[in-house]
């Protein structure tokens, strides 16, 4: 905890505590619609954090993170549907498979020095062909989709992740807080400093004794594993999985947009970005409903996102951080 708050001003601590308290109390304060929006916000904040660890910390661009989320979702859902394996057990299989996939991609990319945009293409390719493969496996529901039996929401069954939106809210809130704490701890560790050095200049890092391959593999493994956990939550919250939408590149983009808008490489960027983008989408929907033209909402939403990226290219968080003077005077930039 000391590390997490290191470099934060008293004002930042108060704000963080207030935000935490508000989020904890939210289900008692807001109606079911707002709660459903908050749930999506937290999901994007969580997955964004996982993705950010790879690009923002270790400098490896993945545009196929839907793969890891999808693997986690399909693994836990299939085990639940076919063997009644509860998700708390299925999550182990989900993480193992997601990490395996991440390791294969990482191994190919890092061993054969596939960098930057080419590495991103590799991640897209893996996500796309996994989606195609899943569409051909009947055991996973094929192209028709995999459906979880819709639960009786009269009582919450945490072990089986069957229950009310409030339960799902607290699960994803816990995951998001956990990911934030993990990333914060990692960022201030030896590994975190090594990642940042690799991100800045990998040859210079290597000359200073940084084992590139190992550090990058660890980044991919943690990022894909966290995404796999997110996938389990995703499967049990939505109850239906379709290969094209789950593994598609548009899903990968959707998962990372919050972080891009919030600030790549910062701890609070994914969270802030998710809190801006999802409600923005909801507001746009409400505003454009009256117009009655198809495609008006995505058009204006896209325009708004483009404007944010254009005017705050390093993300909203670094800007907000300076605006609210959240630092304690020491340097090192917003986190």
């Amino acid at each position: 905890m000391r590390r997490i708050l290191e470099g934060a001003s008293p004002r930042a601590r108060v704000l963080l505590a207030a935000l935490g308290a508000l989020l904890l109390a939210a289900p008692f304060l807001v109606d079911s619609y707002v709660l459903s929006v908050l749930i999506i916000v937290l999901f994007f904040a969580y997955v964004g954090q996982a993705w950010n660890l790879m690009l923002g910390f270790a400098g490896q661009l993945s545009l196929g993170h839907a793969l890891f989320v999808g693997i986690g979702a399909y693994a836990s859902a299939a085990l639940f549907v076919h063997f009644h394996l509860p998700p708390w057990a299925g999550v182990f299989a989900a993480v193992a498979l997601a990490v395996l996939a991440g390791s294969v991609i990482g191994y190919l990319g890092f061993r054969f020095s596939i960098r930057g945009a080419y590495f991103a293409l590799l991640t897209i390719a893996f996500a796309e062909f996994t989606g195609i493969a899943v569409a051909h496996v009947d055991w996973l529901g094929g192209s028709g989709g995999l459906f979880l039996p819709v639960s009786n929401r009269a009582h919450d069954d945490l072990a089986n992740l069957r229950g009310s939106p409030t339960m799902f809210y607290y699960v994803i809130l816990t995951l998001t807080a956990g990911a934030l704490a993990l990333c914060s701890w990692l960022l201030n560790s030896r590994l975190g400093l090594y990642w940042k050095a690799i991100r800045e200049d990998q040859e210079a890092a290597e000359a200073l004794g940084v084992p590139l391959f190992r550090c990058k593999m660890i980044a991919v493994a943690i990022s894909s594993g966290l995404s796999g956990i997110g996938g389990v939550w995703y499967a049990f919250y939505y109850n239906n999985l379709f290969p094209e939408t789950t593994f598609g590149t548009s899903h990968s983009i959707e998962l990372i947009l919050a972080t891009v808008v919030g600030g790549v490489g910062t701890l609070f960027g994914p969270i802030l970005g998710a809190f801006v983008l999802t409600p923005l989408g909801e507001v746009m929907t409400a505003l454009t409903e009256g117009i009655g033209i198809d495609g008006v909402k995505p058009f204006f939403w896209g325009l708004a996102v483009a404007a944010i990226v254009l005017f705050r290219p390093s993300g909203l968080w670094p800007w907000l951080y300076r605006l609210l003077a959240l630092g304690n005077g020491t340097r090192g930039g917003p986190r």
Binding site: R190, E200, D201, A204, A205
Partner: peptide
């Protein structure tokens, strides 16, 4: 230990962090 002809600092890291990366080659403790 080597330096590069054209300096290659880690530009988003402080000078302290830049140098600490080197020291982490012999200590685990940040």
């Amino acid at each position: 230990g080597r330096t590069f002809q054209i300096v290659r600092p880690f530009s988003q890291l402080t000078l302290l962090e830049n140098v600490a990366v080197g020291a982490l080659s012999w200590t685990d403790d940040i």
